[in-house]
Structure formats: structure tokens, C-alpha cells
Amino acid sequence: MHRSRLCNLVIDCQGTDLAAATTFWSRALGKPVENPDEDGDGRYASLETAPDELKILIQCVDHPSRVHLDIETDDLDAEAARLEALGAKRIGFVKRWWVMEAPTGHRFCIVRRQTEDFGPHTNRWD
């Protein structure tokens, strides 16, 4: 048995100006900047959201700009296998998460648990 849930809305911004992208999205969404440099590498920032909202991440990327979702789980490989059984495919392992592609062509990520408690919207899978 493992658990998973939708946890992040990730705004992929082509380019390297994380500060400018973060400022724009912070102002556009009315969300203060929580952390202007999540990993200290100038590629990831987060906006402040309420506990019952998705976390919003800003990410500098090399590919064209888009938005993707993150699914958090307490078992990365079990969740990847579950989603593969539904028709998704693994694209690659990056740092500490799986990049996946849905049968619809949409990219998304499976990430490790992001919070101490999964909360009320957790799925349990056998």
C-alpha cells in the first residue's frame, strides 16, 4: 500500500531569470513570494499559499514554457508503476523525482512527500 495526492502547480518558465518570473507570477496571482530560491541553484522559487491550496512553484527550464502538475507520494516507484499501468510512461529521473508523460502527452512529475501529513485529500493505493 502507498499513498499519493496532487500537491504542486509548477509554472515552467523558459530562460534563466528566476527573479523576474517569480515577481510576475507573484503579482499576477496575488501570492507573496515564500522562497525566492528553493534549492539555492537559481532554478526554483515558491509562492506562499494557504494550507488547503496547491503549492505554486516557479521553475526555470530549457524547454518551452508550460504548466505542469506534481503528484506527491510516499513511494516513488510504486506510484510510477501504478501510473504506468494506466498508460503513462517514465521519461526520466531528475534529482529526486520522476518526470512522467500521460497518454494525453502531458508531462507531470512524481515527487517525494512534501509535507509532514498528507492531509485529507490523500489517495491510498493497494
Rank of each mutant, 00 (worst) to 15 (best):
T49Q: 04
T22N: 03
I71P: 04
E38Y: 15
L76E: 12
T49A: 10
D12C: 15
P103D: 08
D17S: 02
L9E: 03
R96I: 08
V10Y: 04
D74Q: 08
K31F: 09
V33M: 01
I58Y: 06
S46M: 13
L18T: 08
D74I: 09
D74L: 05
T115V: 06
H106D: 09
F24N: 00
T73W: 02
T22I: 03
E34P: 05
D17K: 00
A50E: 14
T115K: 13
R107C: 06
R112V: 04
M1S: 14
R113A: 10
L83W: 09
S4A: 11
T73Y: 00
P103H: 02
G30Q: 10
G105D: 03
F108R: 09
I110N: 00
G15E: 05
C13V: 13
D52Q: 12
E72N: 06
A102C: 11
A50F: 09
A50N: 13
H63A: 13
R107T: 11
C109A: 02
D37C: 06
W97L: 12
G40I: 04
A20C: 02
L83R: 15
A78N: 01
L54P: 07
K55T: 12
D62T: 14
R82D: 01
T49M: 10
E72W: 08
P36I: 06
D74E: 01
K89S: 15
T16Q: 09
V111N: 02
M1F: 07
P36C: 00
L54W: 08
V111S: 01
D74A: 00
T16V: 00
V67M: 13
D41L: 09
A88K: 02
P103A: 06
D70L: 00
R27E: 15
A19R: 13
A80M: 13
F24P: 08
H2V: 11
E116G: 01
R3T: 10
E53Y: 03
H2Y: 10
A20S: 15
L9S: 09
E38L: 13
D70N: 13
I11H: 07
T22P: 05
E38W: 11
E38R: 14
F108K: 00
H106W: 08
S65P: 05
G87Q: 06
T23N: 11
G92N: 11
W25D: 04
W25C: 07
K95H: 12
P36Q: 04
A85S: 15
E72D: 14
D12V: 03
F93R: 14
A21C: 05
D12H: 14
D37Q: 07
H68M: 11
Q114P: 00
H2A: 11
I91G: 01
G105A: 03
N8S: 04
Q114G: 07
D70A: 12
D74G: 01
G87E: 06
E48V: 03
L18I: 06
A45F: 07
H68F: 11
H63C: 02
V33H: 08
A85E: 10
F93N: 04
N8R: 14
D52S: 11
